[in-house]
Structure formats: C-alpha cells, structure tokens
Amino acid sequence: MTNRTALITGAAKRIGKFIAIHMAKNGFNIAIHYNSSKSEAIDLQTKLGNQFPNQKFKIFKCDLHCTEDVEGLIDRVLLHFEKIDVLINNASVFDSGVIRETSVKLFQEQMSVNFLAPFILSRDYALNSINGLIVNLLDTRIANNSSSHAAYSLSKVGLGHLTKMSALEFAPAIRVNGIAPGATLPPEDQGVEYLLRIAKKTPMKIPGGIDPVLQSLDYILENQNLTGQILFCDGGGQLL
C-alpha cells in the first residue's frame, strides 16, 4: 500500500517541524517546504528518513513572497510524489505593528506569505487533485480586534474566510479546514514562562503547547465529514 503524502509549508522549523514529525509517525510521506532554513530542512529530512526508511521525504525550496515561485511549487512536488493527499498551509510571517505603524511594505509582506501563497497553493492543489484535504494554520487573533499585529491579523482573517469559501467550492472532493491556536511555542529568545504568562489571560489558564494543534490535526484527518470548520485550540482565548 502506497503511503499518503503531505505537503507542509514551513516544515523545517517550529510548528511545521512538529507537524511533519507527527504526520511521518502516522505513515505519511512528507514534502518538506522551506525558504531560508535549508540546513534545518536537510536535518529534518535525514532524521525522518533514518526513522522511517519505508517512507519518502523530500525538501522543496520556495520563496512564498514570490508569486512565480509559489505557482510552481505544487507541480514540482508532483514530479516526485504520485499525489498530494494533504496540503498544510503552515508557513507564516509574524510582525508587529498597529495600523498607524504599518507601511505598505510590511502589509504586503504579511499578505503575500500568510494569505496570497496559501490562496495560490490551494487553487493549484484543487486543479491537480481528484480528492484530498487542505488544512490552514490560522490564529486565535482572527476572533478579536486587536491591532497590535494589524497586517498579520488581517492576513489570517483573510485565510480564515478562504478556508470556508474554498471548502464550499472544492466539496465534495476536497475538504478544507483550519486550526486557530493561541500561544503555542515561545519566541526563540524566550522560554516557557512566556507561554505561562499568556495562558494566565485565557479562560483555561494553562499553556497549550503543541499538543492541542496536533490533536486538532488528527481530528481533521480522521473526520471525513468535517469541512469548512475552524478549530480554536487556544484555551478559550477567542472568547475574550
């Protein structure tokens, strides 16, 4: 039996890496997308290849800021894999700035990576797939009006709406769902106390970490009647 294949954007580091390892453990081949993290992507490919020798792991460089680059990614992946069973739009850029501080350049950077790239990949995936699944990584911020990361939040709001719009258009062949975490991993220059501090502001009062994201992903993978849904795994943060 042929292993299923997942294309994961931003798979070399942080949440994307955890998702890649988790899906490999569940029998998936992984198309590992990266942009500037080549050494991390190679390390992940080697680690997974050694641990799961009967599965296939291939790295793909693509600059998600570049429309032409993004438009070729699905075709490049399909040269190496028979089909893509799951597309996970995980990669994102996360820059702060209230509306008054947001330059056109900052706005365009957030939109190009966080919204336009997933739009293109979802479109091209649908054009090249008989059936399948798309999972978009969102953010609990889509449920509030905080402008601390205005362009980032707007890009994720757009991706949330795309999740529902594409779920309707692509059904019944392709399911489309989203996962909206709260604080999942601390910034690289901070420790777990960062997550504890954020968690205290949520109804559940406990840091989620990566497990709620992976559990939400498993639910989406297993529930064949689930589409157009956004699973908030944020300790109730979206209620505030």
Rank of each mutant, 00 (worst) to 15 (best):
45 Q>R: 14
34 Y>G: 10
30 I>N: 11
55 Q>P: 04
81 F>P: 02
29 N>T: 02
69 D>V: 04
79 L>V: 09
50 N>R: 09
42 I>V: 12
52 F>L: 02
69 D>F: 02
62 C>M: 08
32 I>H: 06
68 E>D: 12
50 N>A: 09
79 L>P: 00
42 I>Y: 09
82 E>N: 14
64 L>Y: 08
76 R>D: 13
54 N>Q: 15
45 Q>T: 08
74 I>S: 11
80 H>E: 14
64 L>I: 09
60 F>M: 03
83 K>C: 10
40 E>N: 14
68 E>S: 15
74 I>K: 10
82 E>V: 13
61 K>S: 14
60 F>G: 05
71 E>A: 07
70 V>H: 07
78 L>F: 08
42 I>M: 11
36 S>Q: 09
45 Q>A: 13
32 I>A: 09
39 S>I: 11
52 F>S: 06
59 I>H: 03
65 H>V: 01
28 F>R: 02
28 F>H: 06
80 H>L: 11
36 S>W: 02
60 F>H: 03
78 L>I: 08
74 I>Q: 08
53 P>S: 08
52 F>Q: 03
78 L>Q: 11
50 N>F: 09
74 I>H: 09
76 R>I: 01
34 Y>N: 10
57 F>K: 01
68 E>F: 02
37 S>M: 01
31 A>S: 08
36 S>G: 07
81 F>D: 04
59 I>L: 03
68 E>I: 12
47 K>I: 05
31 A>C: 04
29 N>E: 02
61 K>M: 08
62 C>Y: 03
41 A>E: 02
57 F>T: 01
51 Q>L: 14
